[in-house]
Amino acid sequence: MHFPITTGGLLPRKRGVIKAVDDVSFTIGRGETLGLVGESGSGKTTVGRCLLLMYKPTGGQVLFDGTDLSTLHGHGLHQFRKDAQVIFQDPFSSLDPRMNVEQILSEPFIIHKLAKRHERRAKVIELLDTVGMGAQLASRYPHELSGGQRQRIAIARALAINPPFIICDEPVSALDVSVQAQVLNLLEELQDKLGLTYLFIAHDLSVVRHIADRVAIMYLGHLVEIADRDEVFREPLHPYTKALMSAALIPDPIQEEQRQRIILTGEIPSPANKPKGCVFHQRCPIAIDACKEQMPPLREAKPGRFVACIRA
């Protein structure tokens, strides 16, 4: 997904391009949770929006059950919306402040013509019960709810039309730690109950370790490592993944003091001016001259483990 940089004025000209997502490829199995991890600006949310066709990808394919979504238009795209939904990061800005909870949760049924007017109230109450909330909240507005309650409403809205696939775009990062645990447990319960598939976008490694089955690490628009969750946390292969793991907090203060931190130097390059070769080589502690020549592709370093590094 590339975004053009243009000049202003009546006759805008293209000055360059921001390569927000570049040569990214992965699969998600049915019923699986893939955690997509990286620093702010690495392209995680852009990937999620491309999968939902909120952005039309510059190139490549998005395959959903074998169907290339880039070929969908009109009715076909409308039908796909029933199969894929999103839970946004900020539950306050993603809910219409002029609508109460019942109106918010009724909207998916109206758009997709899945329930008549007299049926919607019962479906709204059922959704509220599914996410652990009472029917008395149906008449409240978003500003009358806590952060955790608003996010539960956002989850209920995503579930309204029974989609098999949900993109969770940092759904707990705006919540208190105690509420985060409740929402994560709710997402896991719903997955077990409804057979949901998640793409879980996050920057908090402890959250990803709790909920993900596999983990994909992004840096500057590229995937640098994909592996099973336990393997990534036990033995990261890519230098960037190692640095991320070393920065994660450990609840044991003795272990925290004893472990060796990897401190990355320099700044993240601009996606509008990426370095030649490996995008991480300017900050990598083990980079060699060959790293400056070409971005290494994802390769299977071990069975089921993929890494984009010539030295891993």
Results as ranks from 00 to 15, higher is better:
39 E>R: 15
23 D>C: 06
94 S>W: 01
106 S>D: 10
61 Q>A: 14
31 G>N: 15
99 M>D: 00
68 D>T: 05
93 S>C: 04
47 V>H: 12
114 L>D: 07
56 K>Q: 10
67 T>S: 07
113 K>M: 09
83 D>L: 06
68 D>W: 05
64 F>C: 06
116 K>N: 09
39 E>G: 09
28 I>D: 08
92 F>P: 01
81 R>D: 04
50 C>Y: 00
55 Y>N: 14
69 L>F: 04
39 E>I: 07
50 C>K: 15
93 S>K: 12
86 V>H: 01
83 D>M: 03
110 I>R: 12
64 F>I: 01
66 G>S: 08
97 P>Y: 06
90 D>W: 03
31 G>T: 14
24 V>H: 08
85 Q>L: 04
55 Y>I: 13
90 D>T: 03
100 N>F: 05
107 E>G: 01
33 T>I: 15
58 T>P: 11
75 H>R: 11
103 Q>S: 06
71 T>G: 00
44 K>I: 12
115 A>W: 07
79 Q>T: 13
42 S>K: 15
85 Q>K: 06
84 A>G: 02
89 Q>R: 00
96 D>E: 06
29 G>M: 04
52 L>H: 03
62 V>Q: 07
53 L>Y: 06
104 I>S: 07
107 E>M: 01
75 H>T: 08
94 S>R: 09
63 L>C: 00
57 P>E: 02
33 T>V: 14
22 D>H: 11
100 N>Y: 02
86 V>P: 02
72 L>S: 00
82 K>W: 03
38 G>A: 07
52 L>T: 06
93 S>E: 14
34 L>Y: 09
77 L>N: 02
100 N>A: 02
110 I>Q: 11
90 D>I: 10
96 D>H: 02
88 F>V: 02
84 A>I: 03
93 S>P: 08
44 K>M: 06
99 M>L: 07
110 I>S: 11
48 G>D: 01
71 T>V: 00
30 R>T: 09
32 E>W: 15
41 G>T: 06
74 G>F: 02
78 H>R: 11
24 V>G: 10
33 T>A: 02
96 D>Q: 02
78 H>V: 00
60 G>L: 10
62 V>G: 10
32 E>T: 11
62 V>T: 11
65 D>C: 14
108 P>R: 07
93 S>T: 12
113 K>E: 15
88 F>C: 05
41 G>L: 13
64 F>E: 07
25 S>M: 14
51 L>Y: 03
87 I>L: 00
77 L>D: 01
50 C>A: 12
103 Q>V: 09
42 S>H: 15
112 H>L: 02
76 G>F: 04
